[in-house]
């Protein structure tokens, strides 16, 4: 489903806010998680491409990179753009383990990212409407306004609408 309007592409460890009509896109999520927070009625949405579960104490230059700071950044920016805090909802996808058969903590970061996103959204009281996490495949995703549909496509060509 396309709602027309503008398309904003979000790179790794980046974030963007969209108002009105359009689409937020992020490509090639592996262990990363794409988090969307939106206010359907207010027609405002934000997407962050989260790379790691937790921000280190001093790194404030890249809030979009970490689950905790990315979610707080999204809430702040969406409210600033006219979103209503009570109406905020979330959808997210990603957190795969791309390389199998090797038992290394580093390769499990996808799972930890997805957990961190879930926890932070719960801490901030934002209901999760849909999510698609885990597995062993990369995902490209896009979120359309005003329909608020999050579409997930894998490299094998499977597409899911959340």
């Amino acid at each position: 489903m396309t709602d027309e309007g503008i398309e904003i592409r979000v790179g790794i460890a980046e974030g963007a806010i969209l108002r009105g009509k359009g689409r937020l896109v992020t490509a090639g999520l592996g262990s990363c998680v794409g988090v969307v927070i939106y206010d359907a009625e207010g027609r405002v949405a934000g997407l962050a491409h989260v790379m790691l579960p937790e921000s280190p104490p001093r790194d404030i230059r890249a809030p979009h990179k970490y689950a905790d700071t990315a979610i707080d950044w999204l809430i702040r920016e969406i409210v600033e753009a006219g979103g209503c805090p009570r109406r905020l909802r979330a959808k997210y996808a990603g957190g795969a383990q791309m390389f199998q058969g090797v038992k290394m903590e580093a390769l499990r970061v996808g799972e930890r990212n997805a957990e961190a996103v879930k926890k932070r959204l719960a801490d901030r009281g934002i209901p999760v409407m849909a999510s698609d996490v885990g597995g062993h495949q990369g995902r490209t995703l896009w979120f359309d306004l005003p329909s608020c549909v999050l579409t997930v496509r894998t490299a094998r060509g499977e597409t899911r609408a959340l």
Binding site: I12, G30, L107, T140
Partner: peptide
């Protein structure tokens, strides 16, 4: 380490490489 092989979208495969050198 022993090698791990995967076939997928480039950035999806390479993103874990960044987690230590953040």
């Amino acid at each position: 380490s022993i090698p791990a092989v995967a076939i997928d979208m480039a950035s999806a495969l390479l993103d874990i490489g960044l987690m230590y050198g953040s």
